[in-house]
């Protein structure tokens, strides 16, 4: 069955269709969240919250974009909301721990921990997300602006400033 048909079935409340859609898109969703959060536990938690929201909002999905794009858009807003609610010292410490945990996991799978990841991790989520969406997933400034509820101009300047910060960070690391 193709995706459009499964979505149609899910809109009618068919829980098997929903389950099939989510199982199919879970890796994309989780990997996206891992890139923006750099926290495996938080990525799992936000992936579940995203799916819960998608069940609620599916009747509003018009099919103008791909289903994965729609899920990424919900996940982005879930992550931004999470940061808005959790702006406390304690959570900064837990972010640091998660970051170290991911670094350790990557090294245990013999994957190189690139310096660019360190620099990307230092950026605020409002800057990191547009960079990843633009230069890794290939979304346009307009699409990213729609996903994050900001103007395309703001997205462009955040991407530019973010790349400059990463470049400067990498230059400093090289000079050491």
């Amino acid at each position: 069955m193709n995706e459009a048909k499964i979505i149609k079935q899910a809109k009618k409340g068919d829980h098997l269709a929903f389950a099939s859609l989510f199982q199919q898109h879970y890796p994309i969703l989780y990997k996206y969240l891992l890139k923006v959060t750099m926290n495996p536990d938080l990525s799992e938690e936000l992936a579940q919250e995203t799916m819960a929201k998608a069940i609620e909002k599916l009747p509003l999905f018009k099919g103008k974009s791909k289903f994965s794009t729609w899920l990424i858009s919900i996940a982005t807003n879930k992550y931004i909301d999470y940061h808005r609610k959790e702006k406390r010292e304690k959570d900064w410490i837990s972010d640091e721990e998660a970051y170290r945990k991911l670094k350790w996991r990557m090294e245990s799978y013999n994957e190189d921990w690139n310096d660019a990841l360190t620099e990307l991790g230092k950026l605020s989520e409002g800057v990191r997300i547009p960079i990843i969406l633009k230069h890794y997933y290939g979304y346009s400034y307009d699409e990213i602006g729609e996903m994050m509820n900001i103007s395309a101009g703001t997205v462009k300047s955040r991407v530019h400033n973010g790349l400059t910060a990463v470049r400067e960070g990498l230059n400093i690391l090289e000079k050491r």
Partner: peptide, 10 residues
């Protein structure tokens, strides 16, 4: 450099 590092996360 960023793309390469994100690929390693994949």
């Amino acid at each position: 450099e960023i793309t390469k590092s994100l690929n390693s996360l994949d």
